[in-house]
């Protein structure tokens, strides 16, 4: 009944990656901002789980650092920051996307299928869980879709973060059990800085335009 340890690890990674995809799709369908942020935190928690499993199963201990950083940064710090921002600028909780929900679900479904098809030739390379590459691609694509589909800067930040989650997933699970640590940490701090800059930007936009609708930025042209 008990499969060998590496196989269990591979299964577990597959499972966690799939759950990340599930949370991504729920993020697409969830209209409340705070719930969106929490879903992102849960998704990052899954990423932490994957990193931990990789670290333990293959003895790649430097990946553990990534796991800890993800936990601290993306599960705790960034969600806290974003929630505080949302509370402080008192914006409307509901997100009004351009494309309606069922249609955007269909688009995201199609994007996921596309990433499955595209990633198919490479799945044999992915020794860790056969579906991490398609899931990573799907996170990337749906994240980009989310960015273009949402109006407010803060929701775009969230979409960017999920995109980054996808890249981290690819990095951890696909390559040599994690890219060189320096690169990972670099990416990570890049994102954190980007989010903080965007957060400040959001605050400023709000102050000068009384709205966070990015489409209003074209008023800057004059």
């Amino acid at each position: 009944m008990n499969p060998p340890a590496t196989e269990v690890a591979s299964r577990l990674i597959t499972l966690l990656a799939t759950l990340m995809l599930v949370f991504q799709l729920l993020l697409v369908v969830q209209q409340m901002l705070i719930a969106n942020i929490r879903l992102f935190a849960l998704q990052s928690l899954l990423l932490t789980g994957i990193a931990t499993v990789v670290a333990c199963a293959y003895g790649a201990w430097h990946v553990l650092i990534v796991a800890v950083l993800t936990l601290l940064g993306k599960v705790i710090f960034l969600p806290w920051l974003l929630q505080r921002l949302v509370r402080r600028i008192k914006i409307e909780q509901e997100i009004h996307p351009f494309v309606n929900m069922p249609a955007s679900m269909l688009i995201c479904g199609a994007l996921t299928v596309l990433s499955y098809v595209v990633a198919r030739p490479f799945t044999s390379l992915a020794r860790l869980g056969s579906n991490t590459l398609p899931v990573a691609l799907a996170l990337l694509l749906t994240g980009l879709f989310l960015m273009s589909n949402r109006r407010k800067a803060i929701t775009q930040v969230l979409a960017l973060l999920t995109t980054e989650n996808g890249m981290m997933l690819a990095a951890i699970a696909l390559t040599t059990y994690g890219m060189p640590l320096v690169v990972e940490i670099g990416i990570f701090f890049d994102v954190v800085v980007a989010v903080m800059v965007l957060g400040i930007l959001v605050f400023r936009i709000r102050e000068s335009f009384d709205s966070m609708d990015v489409s209003k930025l074209n008023e800057l042209k004059w």
Partner: peptide, 14 residues
Amino acid sequence: VPDLLSAAFILATL
């Protein structure tokens, strides 16, 4: 509610 159920449908398709 249809939004939520459409998510279920897409998940099942995937």
